[in-house]
Simulated scan of single mutants.
Amino acid sequence: MDAARTPDAGDEPQSRNLTMRQRKKAQTRQRISGVATTLFLARGFDQITVAEVAEAAEVSTMTVFNYFPRKEDLLLDRIPEAVELFTSAVRERPAAETPLAALHRLILELIDEGYPLAALRDRFTAFWQVVVDSPSLRARAREGVEELEDALAEVIAQTSPDPQPRLTAALAVAAYRTGCLSSAGRMLAGESAAAVDPDHRALLDEAFGALRRVLPLS
């Protein structure tokens, strides 16, 4: 699954410890993305302009670009969130825990919580279809994977004795991405989340477990 926000994902911006101005900015950002996602789901990504999003969200086009540098980021707005979650899991892990163990734990927690970055929900399939149908969205999603990999490699190098932090980051992201894409593909083919979910969790659990056995310093 790509790092993205569905319109009814059910989570509000994290307002704890934020100033009023920061909360308002987070709420505006989420509102714009939510309006854009609704339009993209209804009519397709390539059929909607940024100007139309701005009009529907009752903001200026400039305001939209202030929050989202590219049109693709309106839909794939969870990329920064994914980077923050994954790097924080590594940076803030217990002293005895390896980076891979921290990421393994995070992925399972996200699945248990029903979090859109790892869990499966039937309502997500329409979102995934929009991404599949748009070459520019697929390209942006690949860039997001690279951004996540780069950030993870940096934090692994900073916080562990891992001799190959880039390799560890690449393998961890590949395991996460492959597991999510495999499960999303089954759902796009018509299976329900309830049918896919046990295999989804087992696949990611097995993938990270294997990496932890092969790369014990990671």
Rank of each mutant, 00 (worst) to 15 (best):
I111D: 11
F40W: 08
A193V: 07
A141K: 01
A101W: 04
P165F: 12
P69D: 14
M20P: 00
L211R: 03
A89R: 06
D162P: 00
E52V: 11
L204G: 07
L103I: 09
V214S: 09
D2Q: 08
A101F: 05
S182T: 15
P94G: 07
G114I: 11
L204S: 05
D162W: 09
A56T: 12
L215C: 04
R5P: 00
P198H: 13
E149Q: 12
A101C: 03
A119F: 05
R21L: 15
L167Y: 06
L204R: 05
G144P: 02
P165K: 04
L148I: 15
E206Q: 12
E97D: 07
A157C: 03
A174L: 04
D2E: 10
R212H: 01
L100W: 09
Q47M: 01
V35F: 08
G190E: 10
R91F: 08
P163K: 01
Q30R: 14
K71R: 14
R186C: 04
Y176N: 02
T87D: 08
G34V: 01
L137Y: 05
A139P: 05
A95N: 04
D73M: 15
E52W: 13
S88L: 06
S88W: 08
A151S: 14
A153K: 04
P216W: 12
E58F: 13
A189P: 00
A210P: 00
R177T: 14
M187Q: 12
D112F: 05
E84Y: 09
L167N: 02
Q47H: 03
R142D: 14
D162L: 07
L203V: 12
R70G: 01
S183I: 14
A170I: 02
I32G: 01
V59N: 06
Q14F: 13
E147W: 07
I107Y: 07
Q129P: 01
E206S: 12
R142K: 12
R121Q: 13
T38H: 06
L120W: 13
T38I: 04
V130S: 05
F86E: 11
V130L: 04
Q158F: 00
V155L: 03
A95H: 10
T38W: 00
A118K: 03
F68K: 06
S136M: 07
E92V: 03
A3E: 11
T38Y: 01
T28N: 13
R29S: 00
A89G: 07
L171S: 03
D197L: 15
Q22T: 02
D199T: 09
L204D: 13
R93K: 15
A170D: 08
V35T: 13
D197Y: 14
D112V: 04
G190S: 07
E143G: 05
E55Y: 00
T98N: 02
S33V: 01
S182H: 13
L75Q: 11
L148S: 08
E191N: 08
E58P: 00
V196A: 09
R201S: 12
A189H: 03
